[in-house]
Simulated assay, not measured.
Amino acid sequence: MFPNVLEVARKLIKERVQVGETVIDATMGNGNDTLFLAQLVQERGKVIAYDIQKLAMEKTRERLEREGVAGWVDMRLASHEEIEAVDEPVGAIMFNLGYLPGGDKAITTQAASTIRAIESGLRVLRPGGIMTVMIYWGHEAGRVEKDAVESYCQTLSQMDYLVLKYQYINQQNHAPFLLAIERRGI
C-alpha cells in the first residue's frame, strides 16, 4: 500500500533534517507536527511553532510536556506570516492548512496569509532544506487556498526549487494532498 500524505511529508523531512537544526511548524494545530519535529532535532535543536489560536497552543504545550520535549520548542501565538522574523536558516518547515481539528471550523488558514508565510519561509529555508504543505481543501476557504498555493508554487524557479505534488487522484471528498518544496543547492 502507498504511504499516506503525512507519512510522505515526514519521510521527506527525516531525509533532510539533522539533529541540532532549527525547524518550523507553521501551523501548530494539535501539536502532532511540533512533536515530530522536536523529536527529530532533539535537545540540541530548536522548533519554532506558530498558531493564532490559544487552544492550539494549550493542546500542543500539554503534548510536548507529556513527551518531555517542551524545552526546545518556541511556541508563538502568532500567524505563520511571522516566519519573516526568523533570522536563522532552517532545515524544514511544515504547514497543515485548514482548520484546527476539534476547534472552530470558521477559523481557517487563508490564501493570502499562507502565500506570504510560504514566501517568508522560503527566504529562511537553507539550501537542501524542505517545506511541506498539507492542503486540506474540503471547505470553501480551503478550495480558494488550494488554488492560490498551487498557482504560487508553479511560479517558483526550477533553478532554485523543486516542487513535488503527492496526491491520490481517485479519492472522494477532496482528500488532502501534499506539496513539498525543496530549496536547491548545497
Rank of each mutant, 00 (worst) to 15 (best):
Q154R: 15
R143M: 13
S157Y: 07
I83W: 08
W72D: 01
G129C: 05
D147N: 14
I115E: 00
T114Q: 03
Y136A: 04
D147P: 05
L125M: 02
M134A: 00
M94C: 07
S79I: 00
V124F: 07
V69F: 05
R63I: 09
G128F: 11
G102H: 12
A70I: 10
R123K: 15
D160V: 04
M57V: 11
V73M: 10
A148P: 00
E140N: 12
E67M: 08
I93N: 00
L64T: 13
V73C: 10
R61T: 13
G129D: 07
T108C: 14
R76V: 14
R76C: 10
M159F: 08
L122E: 02
E58Y: 12
G128D: 06
G71T: 07
A78D: 04
W137A: 13
I107H: 15
R123S: 07
E84D: 12
V124H: 08
E150Q: 15
E65K: 15
N96G: 09
T60N: 05
I130N: 10
K105D: 04
M159Y: 11
E140Q: 14
C153F: 05
G121Q: 06
E82G: 02
H139T: 13
Y152C: 01
L156I: 01
L122G: 00
R76W: 14
P89N: 10
L122R: 03
H80K: 11
Y152R: 09
E145F: 03
L77Y: 03
F95P: 08
G129I: 00
K105F: 01
F95C: 11
I130T: 13
Q158I: 13
D160N: 07
R61V: 07
E88M: 14
S157K: 07
A92S: 13
I135R: 09
E82F: 02
G138S: 03
V90L: 01
T155D: 02
S157Q: 06
K146N: 09
S151P: 00
